[in-house]
Design a protein around this nucleic acid. Structure first.
Lengths: 198, 198, 198, 198
DNA sequence: AATGAATGAGCCTTCATTCAT
DNA sequence: CATGAATGAAGGCTCATTCAT
């Protein structure tokens, strides 16, 4: 009876529903009740799948991290140069924003409402952002070293690009507009070019 | 009638207490009860001074906006060049972080936990950030026009600096470290110099 | 308008209702919901009067302690000798048991279901029992010193009487019968007499 | 078929774990979940071995009754006189208290938190206490008849000793100290002697 | 102005038990 | 014989706000 290939998929279903709600309303503003109502399960059933709300929160962030990794890989793996990949990240961001229900970065939003920097949620956020930072740094090292910069200088450029990426993401959310991303992309493009002309 | 210079002093006192709590714990995570307990007033007294929690939230953001403006003015008014003032913004940020209880930017945090972009809180955030953006743009226009850039190009530079500022602010909070600010400051310094050498 | 002499008596009303429920069902087995339902008040109203369920539990024990003290005083103040007062305590106990809804000693029951000996509830229990112990000791000292015993020996007798009292109270509850109290009373009577004949 | 001497060994294991938890935390305060977690079995497995939590509670009390019987037998079977055996009961109690995790008498605690005197748990408690009462009565009859008392008078002494035993047990728990047992033992010793000197 | 009692929906979590696999 | 998903009532407690005094 392979008709139900999502056997045991209830946990995933809960994560999926919660992901949408956590992202759109915020982690703290979303109650367990709404999640189980939308999932059409009993209170107790939720707690057979998750030890606590926080565990669901962690599952959400981990799923989102994997999702972003997949998206970015898919969007960039056909591109040849690191410079193209870097710029694609910003284009991708812009496309995303244009889609429905843009509420900024789930990780930054979660960090913003979680004061305790040592909490497991905050650690998950930091892990994701470290990964993103390293992605930009690796691409930047590849690009800028070819232009004659030292590894350290190239990594510093990657970090700066990361900060522009993060800043534009937050400000796109704040102003509910894509201009911060376009501006950041332009600046990054200039940075990439300047290196080539050195 | 200057005999009672503390008229409405209770209102300010509530704002002061709430400011600390909203900033340290987050707006949503802070309850009215804690505020009135720390202010040692009755529930009803709170509502004679504020129509709602949201109104207190707005008062908090407005007070914080004024406070930041004062801090920045005080920190930069003795500086001669726009470039110095721009760099001072980053230095100031770094000093602030080193102080106790750094929890990032109150405005960004509030935005992150407030989904409705049309709400009064979000409007207050946008107003503050617009002001900050314009500050950087004005300084950049002053600096980069002298270096031969068009107004539009100079403003674009100012916007990029703003995005680096915002990005470094968020990431300093995320990583609980000053390196994002130092990196951003270095990049901005390079941008300012590059213009001069053009 | 002195027609409502129980103004602000809502707190007392809650204690009264809770006292009955805590005693009959046990502290742990009684939920806040049942208390507020019987008091016909909202959840939140309960918490304007009591910080927590435990605070209500403490209020219950304190009220019960005062009540017992009043009962015992009333039952014994017309008696002349300490021996009579001691024996009256047992008679009183027996009468009480014959009344409806005897569920043993509220303090012992509470102690039995409260493992943490340092908790405030347990401290309240200990305070009450210390008071009762001292009552028996004082009466015993008065009685037995007249019979020639040393203060220490007399106090030891009082303590033994206390232990018989407690034991008979618990066993009356256990066997749902008055015989433990009658037996204890007989034994105490013999102890009191033996001293006189010494 | 002695080949599988651990048949039903899992049932005993559950009882052992539950015994510790029920005793230390109380029957009502201990959830099935904690028991199955510590036993490392599934929810369903628990219910294949026990019809209900109450059935496990009964098994616990029965095991404890047997255990106490064994302890007392072992502690007293080498003693020659009934008086020695009676006093040994108190000494034994004192030693036990000094051990770790003393939480009073499991039976009294269970009675205290079980209002329904006709429940199976309460019946089990009563059965145990009746057995203990008879033990003291039999020993007392043996001792006091030799001293010239009637059977009825001797049994009454045994009952009084039982009440002192129970009282001291409860108060040792209440005050978290051994003095109630020492006092009770002293009083019992006097009772036993007085009879001899009659 | 200031008080604090009153509201009732909501918070996250645990409860003992059943049942299909 | 063992598993663990499913149930839904109940656990104690907090929420922002209103209102009579």
């Amino acid at each position: 009876m392979p008709e139900n290939t999502t056997a045991g998929g209830k946990r995933e279903e809960i994560i999926e529903i919660a992901s949408r709600l956590f992202y759109e309303q915020g982690y703290g503003a979303t109650g367990i009740k709404q999640i189980i109502d939308e999932a059409a399960i009993a209170k107790g059933t939720f707690y057979t799948h998750f030890r606590s709300k926080e565990e669901l929160g962690l599952a959400w962030l981990r799923a989102r991290h994997a999702q972003w990794g997949g998206w970015f890989e898919e969007a960039t793996n056909h591109l040849k140069t690191s410079a193209q990949k870097i710029l694609k990240a910003f284009s991708f961001l812009e496309e995303w924003i244009s889609g429905a229900n843009f509420r900024g970065c789930a990780f930054i939003n979660t960090m913003a409402e979680t004061p305790d920097a040592d909490s497991s949620m905050r650690n998950e956020v930091a892990r994701h952002k470290t990964s993103l930072l390293e992605t930009f740094q690796d691409l930047a090292i590849d690009h800028f070293k070819a232009a004659g910069l030292t590894t350290a200088a190239a990594r510093q450029k990657g970090t700066a690009i990361y900060l522009l990426f993060e800043g534009s993401l937050v400000e796109a959310q704040n102003f509910n507009d894509t201009w911060p991303i376009q501006t950041a992309r332009k600046e990054v493009k200039a940075m990439l070019k300047a290196a080539n002309s050195t």
